[in-house]
Each structure stands twice: as C-alpha cells, then as structure tokens.
Write a protein that binds this DNA or RNA. Structure first.
Lengths: 217, 217
DNA sequence: ACCTGAACACCGTTCAAGT
DNA sequence: ACCTGAACACCGTTCAAGT
C-alpha cells in the first residue's frame, strides 16, 4: 500500500461542514478559511475538491432542493401541488440562513430545474395546458419563496417588543415570538388554499380534454 | 468665506451612487472602495457620512420601500391591497439587484415597519380582525416577495435555450425570454387574484361588524 | 468639518513545493 | 493525489494627519 495519506477531505464532507457552519453562524460568516479551520485543514486544500465558493454553495443548495417532495402527482395534481408546496417550505425552513442563496434569481441549478420540470410535467400530465402549468408552478413557488424569505419567525430576535411599543397597529398584531411561527404557517396556508380554490374552479374543463388526449396505458 | 472646501459628499449622494452601482453591476459588485472611486474620493471619506456599508444598504432599501403606495385603503381594503401589492412588486422590479437585500428576513427597517403598519391599519380600519389582517398582509407580502425574488425575467440570460433543450417539459413551457415578463406578470396576478377571491368570500361578516364598532365621524 | 494615506484584520484564489 | 505556505489582489473599517 504505497498510498502516503488516506484523504481527509471529500466534496461531501466539505458540503456538510459548510451547511453546518451556515446553519450555525449565518451565510455571511462562511469563509473558505473558517470552513477549512472547521475541517482541520488549510484554506487552499479545499480547492482540491471544490472549484469555487460559489460552486460549493450551489452544490449545498442542490442537496437541499433535492429533498423536496415532487412525487405527489401520482395522487392527482392537487395532492401533488400541496405536497410540493409544504415540503418545499419545510425544507427551506430547516435551513433559514441558506434561503437567500437557494432562492436567488431564475434558477440555473440542476436540482431546481429538475424540480421545476417534475412540477410542470405533473400538471401537464393531469390535463393543465402548458401555459397554465407554468403559471401555476410559478405562483405556488412565489408563495413558498416569499414565506421562506420574509418569515416572521426566522431570525426573530428577542428585542422585537421594541417595535411593538413604537408601532400602535403592530401592537395588536400578535407578533410576539411565541405566535410568530403560527402566524407564518396560517398566512402560508391562506395563500396556498386561496390558490388551490381558484384552480379547483378553473380545473373542470381542461382536465376533461386531457383524459381524451392521454388515455391510461 | 473662510470655509476651506465645499463638501463633495453627502449621505444622499452616496446612496444614489450606491444604488446606481448595484443596479448596474449587481449587489456583490458594491464595495466601499469602488463606490468611493465612482464619487472621485477615497474609501475612508465615505465614513464621514455613513456609519457602515450595512447601514448604507439599509438606507437605500428604505428609500425604495418608501416609494411603495400604501394609500389605496381610502378606496376600500380591496383597492388598498391591490395597489399595495402591484406597486410593491413594481418598485422591487425597478431594482432587481437590490431585491435579495430589501427582502431579507423579518424587517427591522423603519420604512418597512411603517409600510406593514399602514397595511395592517388599513385592513383593521376596514373591519378585518387584527389576527386576520396580519395573515392577509403576510400572505400578500409572500406573493410579492416571491415574485420579485424568483422572477423568470430578472437576470434572465440569453443562453437559457440550453436548458430548454435538456429538459423536455420545460421545452414547451413558454420560457423563452420574450415571454418571461408576461409569464411573471400572469403568475403574479393569478396568485393575487386567488387571494382576493378568497378574501371576498370571507369578507361579508367581519366588515358588517366593523361598521357598527367604528362609525363614520 | 471633511477628506487623505496608511494601516489592520480579514477575504477568495493560485501555485510552486512537499509527501 | 492531496495538502501546505506563501503570495496576489482584493475587502470593511479605523485613525492620525492635513486643510
């Protein structure tokens, strides 16, 4: 066995350590040097396994997105959408400090494109015209990303009572910390439920056509 | 006139230059040194007018949020919400590179709190119970922030056709650049319209009570 | 009061050198 | 093949010094 050292690093280990650091200290606290220190190694060593900090974060983001449940469409488009929306939100809520990065812009990440494709395919397969499927996917995504991004609960600090005192209407707005998650959740379900109700009303005609076009095998 | 120099900098001039730089080159491209260079000055000079880079960005964000129209509630809660949502989205769309910063987390900025307070006050004044007003404000905000954050059009690059080739369902998804803005807009209006339809249905009872409780002056 | 020059403690990334 | 040490071109921020 002439191998001089068993390797101490690997892309997966680096990703895990990066995510742990971001979860603990925030996205801005992640530096290649701190990450290396956490792994007992020099900063330059990371570049044997990772091309760039941006790439590393993209890979971490892809791992997160990959955990979203897009399999619900076997039980119908409604169930597919609901499971997608709730699991998408839950997965983001597990890593609030990664949300700004994960939800940045029009997504070029492979995992995000696969997710978008699964949703679009599920909707089209259930009879929604492609143009409407795109809009529905986008609208649900807006609600999820918005809820994850501007959550009351995420990073809610204990000095929040300060604001309650200064802004009269917020005073009665149930913004206390113990209610923040509940308000987040109810607001999210309000938006999601409203969207589904509208889709239920629209749904009747297009799905009938689709059954004709794509008969069961 | 013993004044040695007429001051070349001011907080407002610095904010304007910072926003222009971010709009042109992106949020990551903003550094105090580049900003100073743009203003024909040394980096250290900025600190006579601005406490910190973070503070500067917060002030820029406040200016942006301050342009949002929250005055529509004089024409009823429905008109108030619609004008708020559309102008909020439009204001963010004017500065897509600032969106990640403007919509970060639970907002501690004064302008954001004033906006939230105006919306909440408008809804409560129209008869919505405080708890529901909070949820409605949050739900509309989710749609606006989500639409601004994960817009197809913002930063849509010209090599997007690459993905269309690789992902079959996206192929038919009308994701070509010339349609991106239209899809964004229709998806946003779908989500907003769904929310309003649900609120219209809920609205009847609470508003009647409110008229009794808060009679006209 | 406002701006400068130099410095401090950081960054991401590269690269020759060691094993 | 993997890790190190040193270096490069950057950061945000501070502070004594000039006017």
């Amino acid at each position: 066995m002439p191998r001089p050292h068993t390797p101490i690093l690997s892309p997966a280990r680096i990703r895990a350590a990066a995510l742990a650091l971001v979860d603990r200290d925030g996205l801005d606290a992640l530096s290649m040097r701190k990450l290396a220190a956490e792994l007992g190694v020099q900063a330059a060593s990371l570049y044997s396994h990772v091309a760039t900090k941006e790439d590393l974060l993209n890979d971490v983001a892809s791992e997160i997105i990959g955990r979203v449940d897009v399999a619900g469409f076997t039980a119908g488009w409604r169930e597919g959408l609901v499971r997608w929306a709730r699991s998408y939100r839950a997965v983001l809520a597990e890593h609030p400090n990664m949300v700004p990065f994960v939800s940045r812009g029009p997504d070029r990440r492979d995992a995000s494109l696969r997710m978008a494709d699964a949703i679009h395919g599920g909707l089209v397969g259930a009879g929604w015209p492609p143009r409407e499927a795109t809009m529905i996917g986008a609208a649900v995504k807006y609600v999820v990303i918005g809820a994850a991004t501007s959550s009351f609960a995420a990073g809610f600090s204990d000095d929040a009572q300060l604001y309650v005192a200064r802004y009269p209407h917020l005073n009665q707005a149930h913004l206390l910390r113990q209610h923040a998650e509940e308000v987040d959740n109810d607001s999210f379900e309000l938006a999601l439920g409203a969207l589904l109700a509208t889709l239920d009303a629209k749904h009747t005609a297009p799905v009938a056509e689709a059954v004709v076009r794509t008969p069961a095998p």
